[in-house]
Design a binder for these strands. Structure first.
Lengths: 226, 226, 226, 226
DNA sequence: CATGAATGAGCCTTCATTCAT
DNA sequence: AATGAATGAAGGCTCATTCAT
């Protein structure tokens, strides 16, 4: 049985030509999904846009959902890779430096593929039953959780899971909403600064321990509070 | 003028029987939309579920979009009414009292109609081109903006529009995400407290005025930071 | 059994108010039929346009076809009445005078109700199975046949039925086509003159009888041939 | 350019099997349109009659109008081709020979596809907004106009456009009406002779030029006037 | 008489998917 | 590997007509 259990792939391309076909389909699908949305994008139209027959499309992807999943997987893993790289560079930085940098990074990624990025967000309600986005979201959670776990002495929240939940969903929603409703916020200085205030204000200073006023952690906040 | 410009209504019911039909349709539509999503819900199925003929459905609602709009309008305006009433009661309260109360109120509304509430959120990308949700969102913005405008001396942000944007989208997204991914957060004490920290931390103390350290405004935060 | 066998009427209005309702329906139907055509005109829309409930419409007309038939009947009988009156006035006139006058009259009627007139023509293929238009057409045939029968010594054709068939269909088609494609022809002097040439040329001089060259009959043609 | 601008075709069949499908659809459509008329013919019924699935129908024709247009185009262009060929053969013939021959030809074509021929006529009001019939009619006008333009010295009318308008519409209407109301006229000797009288009488002798009585042109008329 | 709520068959069309070539 | 012809369930929606009020 040559069928892989993946819901997004049917057959691995063996020849170079086949790989090109796969890519063309993926690219066409991304373009149409971004332009028309999930329901308005038909597999026949994708094949046509890709310059490929509908039969070929179904040779590599088991069904429409699988194809869309593949699109999101590709974009999601690229996004996570870049995001992870950014986090790694900040492994040693204090929160007051890391958070602004991360936010800056996220907004930059948003500006890079504004629509593909929104696509994942818009497809959340459609594809949740398929279990893909969970993968992306879970990875993102894991990365952010690890990041915070390494800074337990710099932050206030003790329930890490909840803090990650709050931070991830907040930033995702605000970036998405900005892209949709206020594109000017994406190329604006004030917006990222406000996001930093929001996140740093939330992560806050760690609970004061006896005799150790958390002066260092609190200091950076002034930058945004003035 | 026999034609109403409303995109969500076609004809006003004149008889009591007709009103009952309208309501049955609306109720059935809400139930199916919540269960299956916009695209997977067919008007024929709605009519069947409502126990009326498809013709009756189209006598009162001009098309599928109009019907969905009517569902959201009904729920949205009820939600806004209740929210507005809650805000009015807090008109004189200081931020440190009002914000926790508001967040508590929002979560209570969420628990009341968890799915209908999510429906609006999930349909945002589908219905945006129809211009309804803007109405809801605009009203919400207006209410929150007025609330903050009356407390300019208690808060830090000077760009009110951006602050409203951030607070509204953040709370919406977190409540929605909680309802979907972590229902336990909705009936949990820690979650609302964290939301308060997030919002109050963001709104922060007002910019210090000459010689008047904003000690009083900062004080209430202890309640949530311990 | 109060139902009349007429396919276009269900019930005779007894009260004045009812007569007004009937007329409003007929008027609205005529307007919409002219504007949108038979298939695109719905009985519900007619009732709405007439300011009457759909139930009232079906109280006076048995179905859509019956209503349309009534519209055509009304217009057709008015048309025939006027046409007949015109013919009567020309009872004594020689062909060379009568034909131009008749053609002038037909074009005047056409200009009077250009669309209603076309409506009958356009509905021919739709309503033929209902047997109405035959009535109109038959009456028209009878009138024209009587007109020609009284002038057998002035005309060439011996098969009167065929001559009537040719003249009636020719003039109907040309007037209709002019109304649709070349409205300028309707208010033009050359067009009716050409129609006269066509008809008079066809009816032509009577077959020459021994020793009696048909000079007189031919003479009038000069008027139109110059 | 994968999208053809034609309103009557969607996709060209590449395989032989597909061509057979196309033809079956066209044939079935023609049969049902002739039998039931435009509005009473449904695309589902056509597909069923053609023995193909409704999906196949819409793979080759963009919509109902397009399909009907294709039917008419096919028949119309065949008709025009044959008519044109007939005209060419008569290029050198005098009017008195050409006109009877043309009328004979038209009636023969009418007898060949009596219903398809009527179909176009009946669909005129339905399809006019789609711009097809104009094409047919325009071509017919052009052919007839060229025919007359080559015989300016044999005919009376100086306004060629109006003469063409009159002749074309007259013959169309009479042939159609004969097919519908008097099929016996189509296989009758008297009818075509009367049509010749009508047309030749209208085209008439050319305006007399100084001292040249148009005896030759008038002579042939005797044939039909006796 | 008049109203208008209710009906439901049926229309046009789309689209994910299969399979013979 | 690739093609593209074929499928048919299903969707949104209309409209002539009936009947309880």
């Amino acid at each position: 049985m040559p069928r892989s259990p993946s819901p997004s792939r049917r057959k691995q391309p063996r020849q170079q030509r086949a790989q090109a076909t796969c890519d063309a389909i993926l690219t066409a699908a991304a373009r149409l999904l971004v332009r028309d949305g999930y329901e308005a994008t038909s597999t026949n139209r994708i094949a046509e846009e890709a310059g490929v027959s509908i039969g070929s499309l179904y040779q590599y992807y088991p069904n429409k959902e699988g194809l869309v999943l593949a699109v999101l997987e590709q974009h999601g893993s690229r996004w996570l890779t870049e995001f992870d790289a950014g986090l790694k560079e900040l492994a040693q930085a204090p929160l007051s430096v890391a958070v602004p940098s991360i936010i800056h990074h996220i907004l930059a990624l948003k500006r890079l593929h504004p629509q593909l990025d929104s696509l994942r967000y818009a497809l959340l309600p459609v594809l949740r039953p398929l279990g893909h986005v969970d993968t992306f979201e879970q990875q993102l959670f894991r990365l952010v959780r690890a990041f915070l776990a390494a800074r337990l002495d710099e932050i206030r929240p003790r329930e890490l899971d909840m803090a990650v939940f709050i931070i991830v969903h907040t930033l995702e929603a605000l970036c998405h909403a900005a892209g949709v409703d206020r594109p000017d916020y994406l190329t604006n200085d004030a917006f990222p600064e406000e996001l930093c205030v929001l996140v740093l204000g939330y992560l806050g200073p760690p609970p004061a321990r006896l005799g150790h006023p958390p002066r260092k952690a609190a200091a950076p906040r002034r930058k945004y509070e003035q």
